[in-house]
Nucleic acid binder design. Structure first.
Lengths: 207, 207
DNA sequence: ACCAATAATATAGCAGTGCAATGCTATGTA
DNA sequence: TACATAGCATTGCACTGCTATATTATTGGT
């Protein structure tokens, strides 16, 4: 019996915010709606305020990461795939450094946790396949190795994308992942091969 | 020929800002100087503005980390010491999570780089001693293994202190460092012992 | 087709933010 | 003692996110 929210406005604002983030424009309540034809109140009806908008943008960030993970092909080599996922993680963060910062800046709530868990699940499954294929010891806990891989990826990329270390530092990902996977039971020589293959995955260049 | 800046004002403001950060009070230009007797302009004469204040606070954060590193005793076991440094790094970040966030939030400039390098130097020297003691392969590049240890520490603690992962995730530091050091040439059994010893260093509980 | 209910919208104004401009004052030098 | 200089307090501005109010548009019932 009343008018309904136009979903197009919501996506418009989110995409515009993401674009402004990429182009380094300050994202404020007024600058966000300027030129879109919608008024500042749209931010409140759709997001409840700027905080809600940032939260929605954080969700959008995880969604993009999710789709990027989904684009990583599954091969016969789980260790390669796991490395490729980490590589995709780095590529995503480098392509959208400000969005990546937003994703991990604010305090997490349950909804964010769900999004984070969903993306982490990709890593978990890759570890499970690696364990099933005998690459990792049978006592390997998939979630644990997945979290460790995530920590390596996040540590490297956040020190590079929004930190003091130069970009080439990301190359350390290769020996770090290799050490991690060998520590989990993989054969050193084969692991080096797999990590090398997964690392050089086609990484879409930043736009 | 003119009045001199009172250094006490500068340290007063920085310490007050750090305290407000710890007590979760919003740190604004006016709230920072409220009740101190100094006016808002003091922030401009001493720091050039709020940005300069945050930068100074970032320096303070590195200074505290530095002193914490200096408190880590040097033993006959370089691998233990390196682990103890990482453990101290985590303890510092957990004790001052908001200060830690400030340290790595803003964009780094040369001055910040110097501070970061100075603290990183502790890790580098520990790696050098480890290589000298034959724990790491002779082709180990100290700076590289130090950076990798840093990435592990930062990745873990930033995902825990200001991220989605629970605190016990920090325990992953043990297997991660062990894998890293074994990958650098250390003997697995001895490494586990050293990491175990370094990890349980007396970690001052958060104030 | 008409109408009332109701939620989304537009507008104006609020307190709070960092910052710049203006005098005033304290201090070290000549 | 007189002066130049720089720290200081005050005031005001442009901007921030947000809210109160009035208007508009849409929707479901008749």
């Amino acid at each position: 019996m009343a008018r309904t929210k136009d979903p197009a406005v919501r996506t418009l604002l989110i995409e515009r915010a993401a674009h402004m983030l990429r182009t380094r424009e300050p994202v404020t309540l007024r600058s966000l709606v300027a030129g879109t034809g919608v008024s500042t109140m749209a931010v409140y009806t759709h997001f409840g305020g700027m905080d809600g908008m940032w939260k929605a943008l954080r969700q959008e960030g995880f969604t993009r990461l999710e789709s990027r993970f989904a684009a990583v092909a599954t091969s016969q080599d789980p260790v390669r795939d796991l490395t490729a996922l980490v590589s995709a993680y780095l590529g995503n963060a480098l392509d959208h450094p400000d969005l990546y910062r937003v994703m991990f800046d604010a305090s997490f709530d349950l909804e964010d946790l769900k999004a984070a868990d969903a993306t982490l699940e990709h890593l978990v499954q890759a570890v499970e396949r690696g364990r099933g294929a005998g690459r990792f010891r049978s006592d390997t806990v998939p979630l644990e190795l997945a979290v460790q891989s995530w920590a390596v990826a996040h540590g490297l990329v956040s020190l590079v994308a929004n930190g003091p270390l130069p970009r080439q530092t990301l190359d350390h990902g290769v020996p770090m992942l290799t050490s991690l996977f060998v520590g989990a039971g993989d054969d050193p020589a084969g692991c080096r091969l797999s990590v090398g293959n997964g690392w050089r995955q086609p990484r879409p260049s930043g736009g």
